[in-house]
Design a protein around this nucleic acid. Structure first.
Length: 339
DNA sequence: GTGATTTGACCAAT
DNA sequence: ATTGGTCAAATCAC
């Protein structure tokens, strides 16, 4: 166990280094972006013309993004090795995920063999599984406000419901790949009453599918602004200056901060199936993806999409990284780093 | 014919 | 008891 802890220390050191590097890149990127912004270098055309930059000009932004991603990927692999050491890595992207682990996976408690026929299956059809499921607390949710409910994932609607005191119904989606890959990602979409043009999208869990129709994430409506956890406490914002006021209001509620963070997109490929894949067990991969996402959002941001993002992952406000309190070494490091 | 959506029923959490 | 979340048959769209 001792060698293990030594190992852990050195790995953590590596992690810190990588993250610091990422942080620096991110800062640079932030500067760049704000510059571009002030030059009103907003290429909406890129969005309109269906994607990919007219990219003759591989601008420094792209370069930086690549660096950042690289940096985070390194981190992830380090964390992975940590994981394989069976060391409990507290770096955990926040949240009581473990608590909610088993999430969907857990077999319905009372539904199985139960339901010995009888019941009130008025719809007959001996399936006897209707409405049969166990509801769990899900802490790993991210709430987004966006102009469109679309994103780069393929979702399948499985329900709609009128919600008390709300004007618009809420729609329920699950990943299209659930049947084939056991992907457990879910999302709920509901129009905002104040602004019916906007949708509040709640993402629950992460994609475990190796989905590829994620084809170069078309610059969909995403453009991050706020990231909050399911409790509505601020979790992250982009590093942008113009963090919208909503965020600011929330800011004092968050103690830890991070530079870019947000939701995870490209899940870990430990395909849900057998492993309960506690969504968010955060082997660190989450983090990278998170970052990747964030970058996309930065990009989108240029398109003036004012979407709000909340997340249950990591806490953040603007410039520092933070980890769950379990990892004092890291969090204190970043706290001081950020001061 | 196949896959996606709709919709009412069912169930768990509060 | 109420309400949100899920199931799955029916229906729709391609």
């Amino acid at each position: 166990m001792d060698s293990n802890s030594n190992n852990t220390k050195s790995i953590k050191r590596k992690v810190v280094n990588q993250l610091v590097e990422g942080y620096e890149f991110a800062t640079q990127l932030q500067l760049l972006l704000s510059h571009q912004h002030s030059k009103s270098h907003i290429d909406q055309t890129r969005f309109a013309s269906g994607s990919d930059s007219v990219s003759g000009d591989l601008d420094p932004v792209d370069e930086l993004i690549a660096k950042i991603l690289g940096s985070f990927h390194k981190t992830i692999s380090v964390l992975d090795s940590l994981d394989s050491l069976a060391v409990s890595v507290p770096i955990a992207v926040e949240g009581s995920w473990n608590a909610s682990c088993g999430d969907d996976s857990a077999a319905p408690a009372s539904c199985n063999g139960g339901d010995s026929g009888e019941s009130k299956k008025r719809l007959g059809v001996g399936k006897g599984k209707r409405g049969c499921y166990t509801r769990k607390k899900r802490s790993n949710t991210r709430i987004v406000e966006a102009r469109s409910s679309e994103d780069e994932y393929a979702w399948r609607k499985y329900g709609q419901k009128d919600i008390l005191n709300t004007k618009f119904p809420r729609s329920y989606f699950r990943c299209t790949h659930k049947p084939t890959q056991g992907c457990k990602a879910l999302k709920k979409v509901q129009k905002l009453e104040q602004d019916p043009e906007m949708f509040q999208i709640t993402y629950i869990g992460y994609h475990t599918c190796t989905t590829t129709d994620q084809t170069h994430a078309k610059p969909e409506p995403f453009g991050l602004e706020i990231i909050m956890d399911s409790d509505n406490t601020l979790a992250a914002t982009t590093g942008q200056d113009h963090v919208n006021s909503k965020v600011q209001e929330q800011e004092n509620t968050s103690s830890l901060t991070v530079v870019g963070t947000s939701m995870v997109k490209e899940e870990d490929n430990n395909n849900g199936e057998n492993k309960e894949y506690c969504e968010g067990s955060s082997t660190g991969e989450d983090l990278s993806l998170v970052w990747h996402d964030e970058m996309m959002m930065f990009d989108d941001h240029q398109q003036q999409h004012q979407n709000h993002y909340y997340s249950g992952e990591t806490s953040t406000t603007s410039h520092c990284f933070a980890f769950s309190d379990n990892d004092h070494q890291l969090s204190s490091f970043f706290e001081s780093y950020c001061l």
